[in-house]
Amino acid sequence: MTVRVDGVDYEFSSLEEAVRFALKMAKSKGAEVQLHNGTFHVE
């Protein structure tokens, strides 16, 4: 599972870890999280 934040990809071994990271980053940026074909994008 890959989480992309500001064009940088972060790899996670589990969906749970990836979701937690994506939500944490989105909250800190006041951004939204989108899921596309198994890849999260924080914008």
Score class of each variant (00 low, 15 high):
residue 23 L to M: 10
residue 43 E to Q: 11
residue 11 E to Q: 12
residue 37 N to H: 09
residue 34 Q to N: 11
residue 14 S to N: 08
residue 24 K to P: 00
residue 28 S to I: 14
residue 14 S to P: 00
residue 14 S to M: 02
residue 20 R to A: 12
residue 35 L to T: 05
residue 1 M to K: 06
residue 43 E to L: 14
residue 11 E to T: 13
residue 24 K to G: 05
residue 3 V to G: 00
residue 4 R to W: 08
residue 6 D to M: 08
residue 42 V to C: 15
residue 40 F to T: 09
residue 35 L to F: 14
residue 20 R to Y: 08
residue 20 R to H: 06
residue 31 A to V: 12
residue 29 K to Q: 10
residue 17 E to K: 05
residue 4 R to T: 09
residue 1 M to S: 05
residue 7 G to L: 02
residue 39 T to S: 12
residue 35 L to E: 04
residue 1 M to Y: 15
residue 26 A to F: 08
residue 17 E to I: 03
residue 29 K to P: 10
residue 20 R to C: 15
residue 40 F to S: 07
residue 3 V to R: 00
residue 19 V to K: 10
residue 36 H to T: 07
residue 11 E to K: 14
residue 4 R to K: 06
residue 9 D to K: 07
residue 30 G to K: 08
residue 18 A to K: 01
residue 9 D to R: 08
residue 10 Y to P: 00
residue 30 G to T: 06
residue 18 A to C: 12
residue 34 Q to E: 08
residue 7 G to F: 03
residue 32 E to A: 11
residue 34 Q to P: 03
residue 7 G to T: 02
residue 31 A to I: 09
residue 14 S to D: 06
residue 10 Y to D: 00
residue 35 L to Q: 05
residue 17 E to N: 03
residue 39 T to F: 12
residue 38 G to K: 07
residue 27 K to T: 12
residue 21 F to R: 01
residue 3 V to W: 04
residue 24 K to W: 14
residue 3 V to A: 02
residue 21 F to G: 00
residue 9 D to F: 11
residue 12 F to T: 00
residue 36 H to Q: 07
residue 12 F to D: 00
residue 18 A to P: 00
residue 42 V to S: 07
residue 28 S to E: 15
residue 1 M to V: 12
residue 20 R to V: 07
residue 1 M to G: 06
residue 21 F to W: 06
residue 42 V to A: 06
residue 8 V to M: 07
residue 23 L to N: 06
residue 17 E to H: 04
residue 36 H to K: 11
residue 5 V to G: 00
residue 35 L to M: 11
residue 15 L to A: 08
residue 39 T to A: 12
residue 30 G to D: 07
residue 30 G to E: 06
residue 22 A to E: 01
residue 16 E to F: 12
residue 32 E to T: 14
residue 2 T to V: 10
residue 11 E to H: 14
residue 5 V to D: 01
residue 2 T to Q: 04
residue 28 S to H: 12
residue 8 V to C: 15
residue 42 V to L: 05
residue 41 H to P: 10
residue 4 R to H: 09
residue 21 F to P: 00
residue 23 L to Q: 07
residue 26 A to D: 02
residue 13 S to Q: 09
residue 25 M to N: 02
residue 31 A to L: 11
residue 1 M to N: 06
residue 33 V to A: 05
residue 27 K to N: 12
residue 39 T to G: 10
residue 25 M to G: 01
residue 9 D to A: 10
residue 37 N to D: 12
residue 17 E to D: 10
residue 39 T to W: 11
residue 36 H to E: 05
residue 22 A to N: 00
residue 42 V to W: 08
residue 15 L to V: 12
residue 16 E to N: 06
residue 15 L to H: 09
residue 34 Q to C: 15
residue 7 G to E: 03
residue 41 H to E: 11
residue 23 L to T: 07
residue 43 E to M: 14
residue 36 H to Y: 11
residue 41 H to K: 06
residue 4 R to Y: 04
residue 38 G to D: 07
residue 23 L to K: 07
residue 5 V to E: 01
residue 8 V to T: 06
residue 34 Q to I: 14
residue 8 V to F: 06
residue 17 E to C: 15
residue 6 D to W: 08
residue 11 E to Y: 14
residue 39 T to L: 10
residue 43 E to I: 15
residue 9 D to E: 09
residue 31 A to C: 15
residue 18 A to Y: 02
residue 17 E to L: 06
residue 37 N to I: 10
residue 18 A to M: 03
residue 3 V to M: 02
residue 12 F to A: 00
residue 10 Y to F: 08
residue 23 L to V: 08
residue 41 H to Y: 14
residue 6 D to H: 05
residue 41 H to Q: 07
residue 24 K to V: 09
residue 18 A to R: 01
residue 28 S to M: 13
residue 4 R to M: 04
residue 29 K to L: 14
residue 26 A to T: 04
residue 33 V to Q: 03
residue 27 K to P: 02
residue 39 T to Y: 12
residue 32 E to P: 06
residue 12 F to S: 00
residue 34 Q to R: 14
residue 21 F to Q: 01
residue 16 E to I: 11
residue 33 V to D: 02
residue 25 M to T: 03
residue 2 T to P: 01
residue 10 Y to T: 01
residue 15 L to C: 15
residue 5 V to M: 05
residue 2 T to N: 05
residue 30 G to H: 10
residue 42 V to G: 08
residue 11 E to L: 13
residue 6 D to E: 06
residue 10 Y to E: 00
residue 2 T to G: 02
residue 36 H to N: 09
residue 34 Q to Y: 15
residue 13 S to F: 10
residue 37 N to Q: 05
residue 16 E to C: 15
residue 22 A to G: 01
residue 29 K to I: 13
residue 39 T to C: 15
residue 14 S to I: 03
residue 43 E to W: 13
residue 6 D to A: 06
residue 17 E to S: 05
residue 32 E to R: 14
residue 35 L to N: 04
residue 17 E to Q: 07
residue 30 G to W: 08
residue 42 V to K: 06
residue 15 L to P: 07
residue 5 V to L: 04
residue 12 F to G: 00
residue 26 A to Q: 04
residue 9 D to G: 04
residue 30 G to P: 03
residue 30 G to L: 07
residue 29 K to W: 12
residue 43 E to R: 11
residue 34 Q to F: 15
residue 3 V to Q: 00
residue 29 K to M: 14
residue 20 R to P: 00
residue 14 S to K: 03
residue 34 Q to S: 13
residue 33 V to K: 02
residue 25 M to L: 06
residue 14 S to F: 02
residue 31 A to Y: 13
residue 19 V to A: 07
residue 33 V to N: 02
residue 39 T to N: 10
residue 34 Q to H: 15
residue 20 R to Q: 10
residue 8 V to K: 09
residue 19 V to E: 06
residue 1 M to E: 01
residue 37 N to P: 04
residue 27 K to C: 15
residue 14 S to Y: 02
residue 28 S to C: 15
residue 28 S to Q: 14
residue 36 H to G: 08
residue 3 V to K: 00
residue 27 K to D: 09
residue 24 K to D: 09
residue 37 N to L: 11
residue 34 Q to W: 15
residue 19 V to S: 04
residue 21 F to S: 00
residue 35 L to R: 04
residue 22 A to T: 02
residue 24 K to M: 13
residue 20 R to G: 03
residue 23 L to S: 04
residue 26 A to G: 04
residue 21 F to H: 01
residue 27 K to L: 14
residue 18 A to H: 00
residue 19 V to F: 14
residue 33 V to R: 02
residue 24 K to T: 11
residue 3 V to E: 00
residue 27 K to F: 13
residue 20 R to W: 09
residue 16 E to G: 07
residue 10 Y to K: 01
residue 7 G to D: 04
residue 18 A to T: 01
residue 37 N to F: 10
residue 23 L to D: 02
residue 17 E to Y: 03
residue 36 H to I: 15
residue 15 L to G: 03
residue 7 G to A: 02
residue 42 V to I: 08
residue 4 R to Q: 04
residue 21 F to Y: 04
residue 39 T to M: 14
residue 17 E to M: 06
residue 2 T to D: 01
residue 5 V to N: 01
residue 1 M to A: 11
residue 12 F to C: 12
residue 9 D to L: 12
residue 40 F to V: 11
residue 23 L to C: 15
residue 22 A to W: 05
residue 6 D to I: 02
residue 41 H to R: 04
residue 11 E to P: 09
residue 36 H to R: 14
residue 31 A to R: 09
residue 35 L to V: 09
residue 23 L to H: 08
residue 13 S to W: 10
residue 38 G to S: 04
residue 12 F to K: 00
residue 30 G to C: 15
residue 39 T to E: 10
residue 18 A to L: 04
residue 21 F to M: 01
residue 13 S to E: 09
residue 5 V to Y: 06
residue 30 G to S: 05
residue 33 V to C: 15
residue 39 T to P: 08
residue 32 E to V: 14
residue 8 V to R: 09
residue 10 Y to N: 01
residue 27 K to A: 14
residue 31 A to M: 13
residue 19 V to M: 13
residue 43 E to A: 11
residue 6 D to V: 02
residue 19 V to Q: 07
residue 15 L to Q: 08
residue 30 G to N: 10
residue 14 S to A: 03
residue 15 L to Y: 13
residue 10 Y to I: 03
residue 31 A to P: 03
residue 25 M to D: 01
residue 30 G to R: 07
residue 3 V to D: 00
residue 7 G to S: 03
residue 1 M to C: 15
residue 39 T to Q: 12
residue 4 R to L: 03
residue 27 K to V: 12
residue 23 L to W: 11
residue 28 S to N: 12
residue 5 V to Q: 01
residue 21 F to C: 08
residue 30 G to M: 06
residue 4 R to D: 02
residue 4 R to V: 07
residue 24 K to I: 11
residue 2 T to A: 04
residue 23 L to E: 04
residue 33 V to P: 03
residue 10 Y to M: 02
residue 4 R to S: 06
residue 10 Y to Q: 01
residue 35 L to I: 11
residue 20 R to T: 07
residue 38 G to W: 09
residue 15 L to I: 12
residue 40 F to G: 08
residue 19 V to P: 00
residue 19 V to D: 01
residue 35 L to K: 04
residue 42 V to Y: 06
residue 31 A to T: 11
residue 43 E to P: 08
residue 25 M to V: 07
residue 13 S to V: 07
residue 21 F to E: 01
residue 29 K to T: 12
residue 24 K to H: 11
residue 17 E to R: 05
residue 31 A to F: 11
residue 15 L to F: 13
residue 40 F to C: 15
residue 42 V to P: 08
residue 35 L to C: 15
residue 26 A to P: 01
residue 22 A to L: 07
residue 41 H to L: 13
residue 22 A to K: 02
residue 2 T to I: 11
residue 1 M to W: 15
residue 32 E to L: 13
residue 37 N to K: 08
residue 15 L to T: 09
residue 20 R to I: 09
residue 24 K to A: 13
residue 29 K to D: 07
residue 13 S to M: 09
residue 16 E to P: 04
residue 5 V to K: 01
residue 11 E to W: 14
residue 6 D to R: 04
residue 15 L to R: 11
residue 42 V to E: 08
residue 6 D to S: 06
residue 4 R to G: 01
residue 42 V to Q: 07
residue 11 E to A: 12
residue 41 H to V: 14
residue 21 F to T: 00
residue 30 G to Q: 06
residue 36 H to W: 11
residue 17 E to G: 03
residue 1 M to F: 15
residue 39 T to R: 13
residue 19 V to H: 09
residue 22 A to R: 02
residue 16 E to H: 07
residue 32 E to N: 13
residue 17 E to P: 01
residue 22 A to H: 01
residue 37 N to V: 08
residue 43 E to K: 10
residue 43 E to V: 15
residue 34 Q to A: 09
residue 4 R to E: 02
residue 37 N to W: 06
residue 4 R to N: 05
residue 24 K to Y: 14
residue 17 E to A: 10
residue 23 L to A: 06
residue 2 T to K: 12
residue 18 A to N: 00
residue 41 H to G: 08
residue 8 V to H: 06
residue 24 K to C: 15
